[in-house]
Amino acid sequence: MHRLRILDYIIFLLSLAVVTASVFWSASSGEGELIAEIEASGEVYIMPLSRDGSLVLKGPVGDTRVDVADGEVFISDSDCRDKICVAMGPVSTPSSWVACLPNRVFVRVVAGNSGKGTEVDAGAF
């Protein structure tokens, strides 16, 4: 006789609840932990993406202005010729970047807690 008993059902429902919870937990990951790492003239600056702000950096051809707004980082103005950095627009995901090459400014998004913006690859399991 292999009839399911009362606790079997309860444990099954509990399992479903845990899976649902884990989906939400997983979806909420990374929020607010991202930071922008900005390299300019040999210096490294850090701006959390959770807080709006701006930074003006000096480089070989003039000033580059880096802005953080709405959880995204972008170069709003630069004294370079082509303004490719401005055209690159905002970035917000780990290991994405924008750069102004003539002015030697490099902006990269990294995950705050785990140091580098590491990705899990399935092979690790």
């Binding site: 899976v19 937990w25 997983s26 990951s29 990374g30 807690n113 140091g115």
Partner: peptide
């Protein structure tokens, strides 16, 4: 081992 990003595999 993998840090916060390992959350992705939890579900």
């Amino acid at each position: 081992v993998f840090g916060e990003t390992a959350r992705v595999i939890a579900p």
